[in-house]
Design a protein around this nucleic acid. Structure first.
Length: 260
DNA sequence: ATGGTTGGCGCCCAA
């Protein structure tokens, strides 16, 4: 089973890129974030024409929004709403595996919970996810957790750990909380399972600043984790860097896992 | 220390 996570930054604007990616990669399951489309305007007919008959989506106007596109039936679909009415999560069971698609809050600019409520909300959100899994799921369940988690947890998940240590997405508190969440459920980080810790691995390059390709100031914000029963099924991952150079790209690239 | 770009929507906000 081939599973992709991709923050597409407006699904309606980038249907042509989605089609291009599908032709290249043909995943069984595609999890999208930042669809930025209310359910009433989600392009479900077009996506079905691309070969994804089974869809689950939870969207809102302008912001957030997540979707699961699947070649196989999706059962037991539900969404967690940890903050306001934000559409940041959708889950469902495909071929006996429960897939959780998250769009964790970005957290604003200032990494200080006293003056920035968005940062506070981000940290709380991660703790709530951890509590939810501890309370509602077992480590023996077959689970895949994907999404734009908006945190680059390890040193070589960013172009300069030193220069980004006070930048939201790579502050010590966020890194610690995300690693705690991962360890608390013994999730396996597929990106680092296949890429040595000392090797750079990115999934996002900012729109700001010229020459993203040459300067290569990337971050690994997008992740696919699997629960312990799926560890031996891990086959390979691909972070599709070239997608950042496509015409009118998302600032995130598709990240794909193959499971035996 | 600062400013840089993009998308959605409505005349600015979030990333």
């Amino acid at each position: 089973m081939r599973i992709t996570t991709w923050n597409i930054n407006s699904v309606r604007l980038r249907m042509n890129l989605l089609e291009k990616f599908i032709q290249m990669t043909s995943p069984d399951v595609i999890c999208l974030q930042e669809t930025k489309a209310h359910d009433d305007v989600f392009p479900h007919e077009l996506i079905k024409q691309l070969g994804y008959e089974f869809l689950a989506f939870s969207g809102q106007k302008s912001y957030n929004g997540v979707a699961i596109l699947s070649k196989y039936p999706i059962e037991d679909v539900f969404s967690l709403e940890f903050y306001n009415e934000d559409k940041r999560h959708i889950a469902g069971k495909i071929n006996g595996i429960e897939i959780h698609n998250f769009y964790i809050p970005a957290g604003g600019d200032e990494p200080d919970i006293e003056i920035n409520p968005k940062f506070k909300h981000k940290l709380e959100y991660i703790k709530l996810v951890q509590e939810w899994f501890a309370t509602n799921r077992n480590k023996t369940d077959k689970i895949v957790l994907v999404g734009d988690l908006n945190i680059a947890p390890h040193e070589h998940d960013v172009w300069s750990s030193k220069q980004l240590k006070k930048v939201v997405s790579h502050t010590p508190i966020e890194r610690e909380l995300l690693i705690n969440l991962q360890n608390s459920f013994e999730f396996i980080d597929s990106g680092r399972h296949f890429t040595p810790m000392e090797e750079k691995l990115y999934s996002w390059w900012s729109y700001r600043g010229k020459e993203w390709d040459k300067s290569n100031r990337g971050r690994r914000l997008d992740h696919i984790w699997v629960s312990l029963p799926l560890k031996d099924n891990l086959k390979k991952i691909v972070s599709l860097r070239e997608a950042r150079g496509w015409e009118r790209p998302s600032d995130h690239v598709p990240f794909t896992l193959d499971l035996k």
